[in-house]
Design a protein around this nucleic acid. Sequence first.
DNA 1: AAAGGATTTTAACTTTCTTTAACACGAGTA
DNA 2: TACTCGTGTTAAAGAAAGTTAAAATCCTTT
Lengths: 226, 226
Amino acid sequence: MEPTKILLAEDDPNLGMLLSQYIRAKGFKCTLATDGEEAYSAFTAGSYDFVILDVMMPKKDGFSVAKDIRGIDRETPILFLTAKSMKDDKLKGFELGADDYLTKPFSMEELLARVEAILKRTNKKEETHLYSINNYLFDFNTRILSFQGKEQKLTTKESELLKVLSKNIGKEVDRNDLLKAVWGDDNYFNGRSMDVYITKLRKYLSLDEKVEIVNIHGKGFKLTLK
Amino acid sequence: MEPTKILLAEDDPNLGMLLSQYIRAKGFKCTLATDGEEAYSAFTAGSYDFVILDVMMPKKDGFSVAKDIRGIDRETPILFLTAKSMKDDKLKGFELGADDYLTKPFSMEELLARVEAILKRTNKKEETHLYSINNYLFDFNTRILSFQGKEQKLTTKESELLKVLSKNIGKEVDRNDLLKAVWGDDNYFNGRSMDVYITKLRKYLSLDEKVEIVNIHGKGFKLTLK
DNA sequence: AAAGGATTTTAACTTTCTTTAACACGAGTA
DNA sequence: TACTCGTGTTAAAGAAAGTTAAAATCCTTT
């Protein structure tokens, strides 16, 4: 996969160089524009995956650059760099489709964290990761399944399987769909492996009488509440 | 439909204003509270569809606000905003009925995506598949047929067949329709298989004198109450 | 690179569910 | 009446899923 291309518009030459080099050091391609007009023409000329705009820039401020970019592109994520002094009324500018903002001063790691968070989210939409299964609570992030204070740490496969089932409480999940979602392949042997995991999940979920994984013979499984 | 009302509690004025305006820009109504006490009184005063709580707030932290809210309302979704430094053990606080949490820093888009995912998930409640057949009660979800406390667990085919018949109590169900509904195909062999299941269902339903599956020769079956 | 532990897969055996087969019977029809 | 067809019933065969333990793989640490 080719590297993500980032367009950075920042008029302060010191900060601009510093940030662009840092971004490059982290494995992205980065183009630096030093004013708003330059930023917009760079955007139209090349194809970028991400845009970082300083709000206050000569010739064309960050908001109007964003507005123009949104005129031709509704997708590419835009992140604003704002001064702390910014007034509320200016914040309304975000309504034109910004994805995030960062208040100066900020650390470079912080900037990168935001960029990566947004990229991650826009590439594949992030899902909620907390599932309530009657009296159980399942946190997909920490992979902890808890019931009245008792915690059970799940393995990767266990939690991926439980996630898909939890998303479909009361609804049948096709056996092959389940296999493709968790194993990526619905062959016979993965199926047997899944059956082993179903047994394990049932054991974990046995503390709550009302929670049950039922099998639909020849079809799939269903997580259901009495 | 009127817009979803969101209560946002965030003590950082910059972030608070920004988020609330972003939320409004996305078509929600949003009230901003700047500390925990204000958040709780706002919640009791108005009727909100969603609550977003910063965990660390002056006067009353997010957890205790959530606890108090849950004291009077078990339904309304709650989402926590947590600091990155927060340890897993602190996450235990979530068992008091949070629907999700988001770790700072996050993008605004991410916040919105979570809110929408939770709303989608909580709005559709599991439909009950409960059928009453005179003194029998049949739960299609759990596949349990009960009669005066006695429970009989049904198999997939048994329960699918009984479901169709239960939906049509007193009405004749055409043999071929029944086959297509349960087996997907009304060939001769499936028909014989169905006859075997009819026998089984009759056995299960024999505890109640008034319940009967009658055959209409050459046509189909009918579940009737005497 | 090897050890040790955790995780996942494979394997073997068991149980449950579904279909098939065989035979019985009674309703509708020639 | 007798004959056929549709259904009733039971048992056995076959297929899917449940369970447990061992083997293989993957990860982390040294």
